[in-house]
Design a protein around this nucleic acid. Structure first.
Lengths: 153, 153
DNA sequence: AAAAATCTCTATTGACATAGTCGAGATTAA
DNA sequence: TTAATCTCGACTATGTCAATAGAGATTTTT
């Protein structure tokens, strides 16, 4: 039931790009350092996100990456589906990556029916959560961390 | 975000055992045939479930497997955790299989905070769903399939 | 025009996990 | 005693995943 490291890196990178939205582009190097992601690996991932239309890039000396759409428009579901494939725990309940399973009768499979619920629960969260949500939350968490000082004295 | 084939087979096997609860033991062969699971592979899985205290076995001529506890007491969470490990999508939000992640500050990680929600959603379903639930649902689905005839004439 | 910094593309590697197989043994009922 | 079953550990083949690498294309700066 795990997200791959690749998928996690993608989200971390998008968070960084989200925090720099409508500022200048961000270099791979910068993201790599900030997030402890191997640079050459991150290259691949960002390139992949580019082909998904999630980010866009500028080459050359002052090059780098930025979001191709507004942060509110990029859902985690989109990103993870593009990087990993199905969100569903078994592919026989996946909408976009459906595969027939080996059970005797899929239409009356009790496990399938439960797994549909799990899928729904996951998709619901991943579909309503966007890069903008991540950014808000990051700012909030950053603030929370400092707040104890606000209340001192 | 996938369940392994192994995990799926485990659930399918438990469903069969659940449907035979407090009847006689069920042979590996029978389960294997009913559920299209390679027999030697299923052997391993059932043995594994035995060490988890989920099923028990009888050897010899009229041997086979049965549930070691009442179907209502066996949650999907227990089973999947034993076969697969963490239910959480990233191990830094797992309660029983926690592992530190590589992000710069785990305590203020926005992604982690979302993944906690996903984990909660998954755990909630998997913890309330038991082998008994699967059996009920299987019977229901079986019945549904025949019901059109009930309403004819 | 040259140089330097960046992204781009494709290939490759090594480690590990997964699905599945196998053989030989132990136990039990008939 | 025999046949049917579970038991246990080893084995293998395949694939996936994380990561690395090299050579090229593009852009800015000088």
């Amino acid at each position: 039931m795990k997200l791959s490291v690749r998928g996690e890196y993608a989200l971390r990178a998008l968070l960084v790009l989200g925090l720099h939205y409508d500022q200048s582009v961000v270099r791979i190097q910068t993201i790599s350092e900030q997030q402890n992601i191997p640079k050459r690996f991150l290259e691949q991932i960002l390139n992949d996100l580019k082909s998904a239309g999630v980010v866009e890039s500028r080459r050359g000396v002052s090059g780098g990456y930025r979001l191709a759409r507004r942060p509110e428009e990029i859902t985690l579901a989109t990103v993870v589906r593009h990087i990993e494939g199905a969100l569903a725990p078994v592919s026989c309940v996946s909408e976009r990556f459906y595969e027939k399973c080996t059970c005797p009768d899929e239409s009356r499979c009790a496990i399938r029916s439960i797994m549909k619920e799990v899928r729904e629960a996951i998709v619901k969260i991943m579909e309503r959560t966007t890069v903008a949500t991540l950014c808000e939350r990051a700012r909030l968490l950053q603030h929370e961390a400092v707040s104890p000082f606000d209340f001192s004295i």
